[in-house]
Design a protein around this nucleic acid. Sequence first.
DNA 1: TTAATTTGTTAGTGATTGCTTACTTTCTTA
DNA 2: TAAGAAAGTAAGCAATCACTAACAAATTAA
Lengths: 205, 205
Amino acid sequence: MRKKGQDSIKTREALLKAALELISRRGYLGATTKEIARKAGVTEITLFRHFGSKEQLFEQLLKEYSFLPKLRDLIPKVKRLSAEEALLGIGLAFLDTLKERERLVKIMLSEMNIYPDKVKVIYSRFISELIDVLGKYFSELQKKGVLIKFDALTGARAFLGMIFSYFLSEVILQGRMINSREQSRIVKTYVNIFLHGVVNRKGHG
Amino acid sequence: MRKKGQDSIKTREALLKAALELISRRGYLGATTKEIARKAGVTEITLFRHFGSKEQLFEQLLKEYSFLPKLRDLIPKVKRLSAEEALLGIGLAFLDTLKERERLVKIMLSEMNIYPDKVKVIYSRFISELIDVLGKYFSELQKKGVLIKFDALTGARAFLGMIFSYFLSEVILQGRMINSREQSRIVKTYVNIFLHGVVNRKGHG
DNA sequence: TTAATTTGTTAGTGATTGCTTACTTTCTTA
DNA sequence: TAAGAAAGTAAGCAATCACTAACAAATTAA
């Protein structure tokens, strides 16, 4: 009893989407092929006919739902802005991407011990690459004298790490929604700290 | 065939330790009771006689291997130091604790979607509490005029987040060891960024 | 309409897993 | 040394899970 308009491609997509949701909730081992198929609106054997095995389905999921390369493209666009505006734009885009790919991040964190190689692919395709690009941007600003000397990669990791930890703590661990006002406020605070520090330079007493 | 010197308490501890290691490697569902028992040097039924069920064993594990409250006690001790030295001490102690409890952190990240309540207990017993304590410390420094005005809790989260992200990326994701030289270098860089920012204030051209 | 493709149905297999029952052996301690 | 506590042995149950076989029905494309 195939439903109207449900051809092979849509079935495949429906299966991947169902797998993404269920695996992110129950983990790879906790999500059963039967349940994934049911959520996708097909029978179990259709899942196996499409992907061969549960593990191949998982691999396809990691490939297709990977992060977009949109952040890498963002940095060139942002270069003409002030460091303040540039970092704000990068930070907000980073947080948006994390929110968009929340399920994938959950899977990555959940399965990294069991499937370290598969997860490392996601990681290096996204965060470590982003650290690299941002680090190069910092190096340029250092050469121009805008920024002081520091290890640019370590700095890039620090900046993205602040935002990632915020995301991990609020969205993933606490399950909170963050509205765009709060998101803005947080990233602005982080940018300020990152650029200017927290020490009062005006003297005190 | 009980081995010498292996009484009930040691058996219990051995089971918890084996569960910690196996669950951190294979996940809760991936670690079997049989394997846990074998690693502990006892038979499977001994596991059930001690803990009743796999889930109760898991709960005991989360309770007993929780983080030490040593970080909370650290902040009072560090108050007489300069902000620079204080943050360095706090950062290093935080990273040490994370390394010490690496397996627990892994379990926490892996199981947070499946057992959110149990994991939240760990989280709030440790990191969120630490954010709180560090935030209060920042507030005091702000009142003294040492630090500028900023949301103290957000700042605390930023500082610890930088370090946590570093740990997550290097130790947990990449599986790297970090020696104390590198650890020192990283934390010093982070403290510097956090306190003074990265902007060159001496003018440039 | 015909032929190929895709999906459904039904039933099942073999392996694993958490957990139990019933009974024996070993250790501790009084 | 006697008794209770703790651990072992062996067998297995009931449920679940990934995956398959064989055939029927529905959809699509020619």
